Amino acid sequence: MVTGRVLRFDQVRGYGFIAPDTGGADVFLHANDLLDDKHAVRPGTVVEFRLEGGDRGLKASDVRIVGQRAAASPSHSHESSYESSYVPSHEGNAGDDLCEVLSESEFKREITELLITTVPTLTGTQIVAIRQELSSLAKSYKWVES
């Protein structure tokens, strides 16, 4: 069995990727290979799995959750009612000199997840406005691919 952290997981589409603790290529994760509820799988979730060769590369099977990433502690007292379980997809790559450049749509998905998880009271209109401003900023610094 191999351990690693979930980098990202799309609960609607039912798949994502795991970064093995041993390093190397990311491993494909499909919801059908989960031994636990797919709704418990979030970025940062620690999992244990069997490593298999698939048609398109490495694939995880018999995936079991062994831990959840601790929630970030609020930095301001008025934020104490918010407990964020959001972990960006690049988390866990500490020490790497290179970072992943996301497409604009992936970046917007990450922002949306962050906003919904951190401040669930935001309206759709507020989320769209924040997302647009952050996306423009990310483009200006070339943090995203257009």
Rank of each mutant, 00 (worst) to 15 (best):
I116Y: 00
E133H: 12
S81L: 09
R131A: 13
H90P: 02
V119H: 05
R56G: 03
G23R: 10
D55Y: 05
R109A: 15
S135D: 05
G4I: 01
V2D: 06
I130S: 05
L98D: 11
F49E: 00
R8E: 03
H76S: 10
D10M: 02
D21E: 13
T112I: 06
V144A: 01
D62E: 15
S135Q: 10
L98N: 08
V27Y: 03
S77E: 12
A129G: 09
V66E: 02
S105H: 09
G14H: 05
S81G: 13
S75F: 10
L102T: 04
I111L: 14
R50D: 15
P43Q: 06
S140F: 05
L122W: 01
Y82G: 02
I127N: 01
R50G: 06
E110P: 07
R109W: 09
V63W: 01
P20A: 03
F17D: 03
L34Q: 06
R64Q: 13
R42Q: 10
P20F: 04
V128L: 11
I111F: 09
L102A: 12
G14L: 05
D37S: 15
T22I: 11
S61P: 01
A31R: 12
G67L: 01
G95K: 11
Q126H: 02
G14Q: 06
I127H: 03
P43D: 04
F17Y: 14
A94D: 11
E91W: 15
S84P: 07
S140M: 12
Y15G: 00
I111D: 06
S81A: 11
A25D: 13
R8W: 13
L137G: 03
I116C: 04
L7N: 07
G57L: 07
V128G: 01
E104R: 13
V2T: 07
D33K: 08
K142M: 12
R69M: 12
L114P: 01
T118S: 12
G95C: 08
I18C: 03
Y141C: 12
E79P: 04
S136F: 00
E100S: 10
T112Y: 06
L51R: 11
S135V: 15
K38W: 04
D55K: 15
T3W: 01
I18Q: 03
F28N: 01
F17W: 13
D96K: 14
L58W: 10
R42L: 15
H78V: 14
G57I: 08
K142L: 13
V6L: 07
P88E: 10
K139N: 08
D26W: 08
E133W: 03
V144W: 00
V6M: 06
L102W: 08
L114Y: 14
L115Q: 05
H76C: 07
V6P: 02
R64M: 04
A129Y: 04
G14I: 06
V47M: 09
E145H: 13
R8T: 15
M1H: 05
E106R: 14
Y15E: 02
Q68K: 13
T45F: 02
V6Q: 04
P120K: 01
G23M: 10
F28T: 10
V128T: 11
V101T: 14
L98P: 00
D37I: 06
H76V: 12
T121M: 02
A40N: 12
R42D: 04
K59N: 09
A129D: 13
S75V: 14
S146N: 13
E106H: 10
S140W: 02
G14W: 04
A60W: 01
R69V: 14
V87L: 08
A138L: 08
E104W: 07
E48V: 02
V128H: 03
T118P: 01
G16S: 05
